[in-house]
């Protein structure tokens, strides 16, 4: 682990504890953790288990997925604008969830919405690999992803347009904004194993991403199997980011900003950015999720709104200040 990655991991761990400590009821974090383990204080234990722990775990997992996925995609596409949303996986997962809301299947409860989103993400993988996986250049993947994002966006808009009742539209819109609020431990249990599988696939691409720094031809002459790398990458992003969308809706800008922010502190090899960017993403999302709980706006902001609200101007500032270096 590089020093940067260790620093980000420590920051994420700290914010994870802070996330467990912040909430409507006043429970000291150590007392809450003790209650969780020993069951000494049933009320505190319930609050920790059912409200704060799922939220903190999902913040950690989703943030890590977004940061890692962004760093891996930027390395693969050699484009600093890439993020998990770019390849269309998030859009397809969101469409899958929206389809469940729209058809009223969500009334069955359980994990119907989450499963709908996962089905959407899986569909995106099949589409992307079918279209761009074989004999692919990274450019084909970008174009296929952009096409998929537009198409799923249009279909989501269509679902809103034709929505049978205002309540369904409201549910869809609220869900699309992205939030970690009111998730159950079952959500984390569903999402985290899928995410971990996705992370493993993305980390397995590390050397190929380094080789791609010298262009497609040199990378291939260094032994990189481009179609296989593209397949692993798409599957890895779909598993990790798709699972995140399935349980929390779409959360933007984390995957774009974090690799950007951390890259200058690495030796610029894509592989050195992966772990640091994962923990950095976790830290950023946990911090944003703590912030929405502390901000007293009458009603809690969705964390996806906050990340976009802060992320977009911040990204612009980053691009402006790096303009001379990047040109």
């Amino acid at each position: 682990m590089t020093r940067l990655a260790a620093l980000m991991a420590a920051l994420a761990a700290l914010l994870f504890l802070a996330s467990l400590a912040v909430g409507a009821s006043d429970i000291p974090v150590l007392h809450g953790l003790a209650a969780l383990v020993t069951g000494s204080d049933p009320l505190a234990a319930t609050i920790m288990r059912d409200i704060r722990l799922p939220r903190a775990l999902l913040g950690l997992g989703i943030g890590f997925s977004l940061g890692l996925g962004g760093a891996a995609l930027q390395g693969f596409l050699r484009n600093p604008l890439a993020e998990p949303g770019l390849v269309g996986v998030s859009g397809a997962a969101a469409l899958g969830a929206v389809a469940v809301f729209y058809t009223g299947l969500s009334a069955f409860g359980g994990f119907t919405v989450q499963l709908g989103a996962l089905a959407g993400a899986a569909g995106a993988v099949v589409f992307l690999i079918g279209l761009a996986g074989r004999r692919s250049s990274p450019m084909t993947l970008v174009l296929a992803g952009v096409a998929l994002t537009s198409l799923t966006g249009a279909l989501t808009a269509l679902a809103l347009n034709l929505s049978p009742n205002p309540f369904a539209s409201y549910e869809i819109i609220f869900w699309l904004l992205g939030s970690l609020k009111d998730r159950a431990l079952g959500d984390a249990a569903l999402a985290l194993p899928l995410m971990a599988a996705g992370w493993a696939l993305l980390f397995a691409c590390a050397s190929a991403l380094d080789a791609l720094t010298l262009g497609d031809d040199t990378a291939r002459s260094l032994g990189v199997n481009l179609p296989r790398t593209a397949t692993m990458l798409v599957a890895g992003v779909a598993l990790s980011a798709g699972a995140g969308v399935a349980v929390a809706g779409t959360i933007g800008f984390v995957g774009l900003v974090v690799p950007h922010l951390l890259r200058p502190f690495t030796d610029e090899r894509p592989s050195s950015l992966l772990l640091a960017s994962g923990f950095g993403g976790a830290a950023l999302l946990l911090a944003a999720d703590i912030a929405v709980r502390l901000l007293t706006t009458g009603r809690e902001l969705n964390v996806g709104v906050l990340t976009a609200l802060i992320g977009a101007p911040f990204f612009l500032w980053l691009v402006m200040s790096n303009r001379r270096v990047m040109a």
Binding site: D210, T213, G215, G223, E268, S272
Partner: peptide, 25 residues
Amino acid sequence: RVVHWNLAAGAIVALGRLPHGASAG
């Protein structure tokens, strides 16, 4: 002659060792 990220010369040359199982880091 393409180098997509701003790697230092040492890191670029080290990429030549990838086929031999080296991690460039």
